[in-house]
Each structure stands twice: as C-alpha cells, then as structure tokens.
C-alpha cells in the first residue's frame, strides 16, 4: 500500500533531501512508524514523547487537516497523499510570559483572599 508523503524543507535532512517519499500504513501513526524505519528520527520531529502529534507541525491527508480526522489514528487508504508543513505561529506573548502572568494573577488572587480574610476578621 503506497502513500505519497510530502516532506517540508526543515525535515528533508531526514530523507536525504527528498521532497516526496513513499510509505505504508493503515493509520497515520503506522505510516510514521514505517517512515521512521527508513528515515530514522523523522517520527520524533512529528510526535511528542507522550504520543501526540506535535503542535509545531500540520499534517494533512489529501485536503484535510488530520487534527479533524483523529490525528495519529486518522485512517489511510492506498493512493492517499499526506502533506507535512511546519505550523506557522508565534507572537509577542511567549510561553514564559504567559506562565509569569498566570503566576502573577494566582498571587494577586491569593493576596485578595488574604485581604478579604483580614477584613472579615475585623
């Protein structure tokens, strides 16, 4: 069962520079395992340690984003075309900043309830 897989520039170091490779599998997870047997390291760039599809990539089966098809459980058929693209995202609000704000508001919440408690005590 041959499935055509389009590889983005950033991952072509795993495919010897090839833009398109072929693989096999009944699901996207199977396909990635099959590809990884010939292009070692590719799967780790697409799947997290906890076994979920990485947020930094978009994977499509034909014209559909696999996030809407069951992600790694997405069913594949002979002749399907899989496209991998780097997700394009970012913005001013870094993860670190988000964490700091969350901590800050948690601390502010704690201060507020402490103040509430002291008012109630009076």
């Amino acid at each position: 069962m041959a499935i055509e897989v389009r590889i983005p520039t950033i991952l072509r170091s795993y495919t010897g520079g090839a833009k398109v490779v072929e693989g096999a599998g009944d699901t996207l997870g199977d396909l990635l395992a099959d590809l990884d047997s010939r292009h070692a390291g590719l799967k780790a760039r697409l799947v997290t340690e906890t076994g979920a599809l990485h947020r930094f990539v978009n994977v499509y089966v034909n014209d559909e984003d696999v996030r809407f098809l069951g992600a790694l459980d997405a069913k594949l058929n002979d002749g399907d075309s899989v496209t991998i693209l780097p997700a394009v995202a970012g913005g001013a609000f870094g993860f670190a900043a988000a964490a700091a704000i969350a901590q800050h508001s948690a601390a502010a919440g704690a201060t507020r309830s402490a103040r509430g408690a002291s008012v109630a005590a009076r």
């Binding site: 983005p8 520039t9 950033i10 930094f56 990539v57 780097p86 997700a87 394009v88 995202a89 970012g90 913005g91 001013a92 609000f93 870094g94 993860f95 670190a96 900043a97």
Partner: peptide, 20 residues
C-alpha cells in the same frame, strides 16, 4: 507585535520552521 518591540519572542523561535 502590537505593543512590544519587533524582536522574536520565545514562542516565535520555537515555531520557526522555515530555515530559508
């Protein structure tokens, strides 16, 4: 960036997937 300087944030760096 609409309130901060035009410099890549950590989020920008972790997502940057087009080396060229």
């Amino acid at each position: 960036h609409t309130a901060t300087e035009a410099y890549p944030s950590r989020t920008d760096i972790s997502f940057a997937g087009e080396p060229n």
